[in-house]
Design a protein around this nucleic acid. Structure first.
Lengths: 103, 103
DNA sequence: ATGGGTAGTCACTTTTTCCTGACTAATTGT
DNA sequence: ACAATTAGTCAGGAAAAAGTGACTACCCAT
């Protein structure tokens, strides 16, 4: 076994998992917006030109499931929900910046 | 504009491009194998269980187009082609390792 | 000349992903 | 009461990605 992380198991090393987690449509963009500020459903719908409810809902749900975004109900009264980057996600930011420089 | 790289243009920042370039099926795995040694078509077909010619051909072509892999004809006589990581791709390895640690 | 290796391509089917439009359910403003 | 906001869901269709099996073309060993 010469690879730095095993190849056989159903699905790969952490980096590969992350890659997959960010590979659906809109996901990378949502992540980038979330770097700057918490994101919200309808706001995203307006910001991301061409996006639709269904795809955004799926993207948000999956980003949450992968532990990159955290959903929080800010207010119940006038319904207000926001998604923020998890600590894990925040720790990835410098790495992505580095990628921006190199790629 | 608060984003660290512009959101509007057809397709995003370098990191996002890279992400997309590695998001097709088998691509990440091919990349990982190529880190250890040059890869070859039929060898990949055997190494990557479940992979098929068509998908590998596409993956290799696209990785090449994105400037991550370089195709070289080692021998013409008994046909022998290999794909190696480009310099750019090699420069990304430490970043991916970091990702492995954090993700 | 038959079988096996190299590296693919081509047409077609299946699977997955994405998009569309209608609908829910609650709150706020006019 | 009515429109608009919030955040979604659901069924169905279109589009994109992936897989299948047959085929090419060339080389080498038996």
């Amino acid at each position: 076994m010469t690879t730095h992380c095993d190849i056989s198991p159903a699905d790969g090393c952490p980096a590969e998992r992350l890659l997959k987690a960010l590979s659906g449509k809109w996901k990378a963009q949502i992540f980038r917006l979330a770097v700057d500020a918490p994101v919200r459903f309808n706001a995203l719908l307006r910001q991301l030109n061409g996006a639709n409810k269904q795809s955004l809902a799926t993207a948000l749900k999956e980003l949450e499931e992968e532990g990159l975004l955290e959903k929080e109900i800010v207010q119940q009264k006038p319904l207000n929900i926001q998604y923020t980057l998890s600590e894990k996600a925040k720790s990835l930011i410098p790495v992505f910046r580095q990628l921006d420089r190199l790629a």
